[in-house]
Amino acid sequence: VTLFVALYDYEARTEDDLSAHKGEKFQILNSSEGDWWEARSLTTGETGYIPSNYVAPV
């Protein structure tokens, strides 16, 4: 399991995006899409895309 933590708040801009709150942890499901990674929030269980530069490894 690849875990990352949000460094900043991010507000989803499309229905495919996933909002993130600073300190929230995510499981990365797919990081092969360049700057946008598919992730699952460990807080809400929701999945979507987050900007890779907004997260760091735990």
Score class of each variant (00 low, 15 high):
Leu18His: 02
Trp37Ile: 07
Ser52Met: 09
Ser32Val: 10
Thr47Trp: 09
Gly45Leu: 06
Pro57Asp: 04
Leu42Trp: 07
Val5Tyr: 13
Lys25Ser: 05
Glu24Met: 04
Gln27Pro: 00
Leu7Phe: 03
Glu46Gly: 07
Phe26Cys: 03
Leu42Val: 09
Ser52His: 07
Asp17Gly: 15
Trp36Gln: 07
Thr43Gln: 09
Asn53Tyr: 12
Thr43Cys: 14
Ala6Lys: 00
Ala6Asn: 00
Glu46Val: 10
Glu33Tyr: 11
Pro57Lys: 07
Val1Arg: 11
Gly23Ala: 01
Glu33Leu: 14
Pro51Cys: 12
Ser32Lys: 11
Leu18Ser: 01
Lys22Asn: 04
Val5Leu: 05
Ser52Lys: 15
Leu42Arg: 01
Ile28Tyr: 02
Tyr54Ile: 15
Leu42Lys: 03
Thr14Tyr: 14
His21Ile: 12
Gly48Arg: 02
Ile28Phe: 03
Val58Tyr: 13
Val1Leu: 13
Leu29Arg: 04
Thr14Gln: 09
Ser41Arg: 10
Tyr10Gly: 00
Asp35Thr: 10
Ser32Ile: 10
Glu46Lys: 15
Ala12Cys: 06
Thr47Gln: 09
Leu42Gln: 06
Leu7Gln: 04
Tyr8Gln: 08
Gln27Phe: 14
Ala6Thr: 03
Ser32His: 11
Lys25Ala: 07
Glu15Arg: 11
Ser31Asn: 12
Glu33Thr: 12
Gly45Phe: 07
Thr44Phe: 03
Lys25Asn: 06
Ser41Gly: 01
Leu29Thr: 05
Arg40Tyr: 09
Thr14Ser: 14
Thr14Ala: 11
Lys22His: 05
Glu38Asn: 07
Glu38Trp: 15
Thr2Ala: 11
Asp16Gln: 14
His21Trp: 08
Gly45Pro: 00
Trp37His: 03
Leu42Met: 13
Gly48Trp: 05
Val1Cys: 15
Ser31Thr: 13
Glu33Arg: 15
Tyr49Gln: 06
Trp37Phe: 09
Asp16Trp: 15
Ser31His: 10
Ala12Ser: 09
Asn30Glu: 06
Trp37Val: 09
Asp9Gly: 04
Ala20Pro: 02
Ile28Asn: 00
Pro57Phe: 07
Thr43Val: 11
Glu15Asp: 12
Ser32Gln: 12
Arg13Ile: 10
Asn53Phe: 12
Gly48Val: 04
Phe4Ala: 08
Asp17His: 15
Lys25Glu: 08
Leu18Lys: 00
Ala56Asn: 04
Glu11His: 11
Ser32Tyr: 09
Arg40Phe: 08
Val5Cys: 09
Val58Phe: 12
Asn53Arg: 14
Gly23Asn: 04
Phe4Thr: 03
Ser41Glu: 02
Asp17Trp: 09
Thr14Trp: 12
Ile28Gln: 01
Thr47Met: 08
Ala39Asn: 00
Arg13Phe: 07
Tyr54Gln: 06
Gly34Arg: 12
Asn30Leu: 07
Gln27Ala: 10
Ala39Gly: 04
Tyr10Gln: 00
Gly45Val: 02
Gly34Ala: 13
Gly45Trp: 07
Asp16Cys: 15
Tyr54Pro: 00
Glu33Gln: 14
Asp9Glu: 07
Asn53Pro: 05
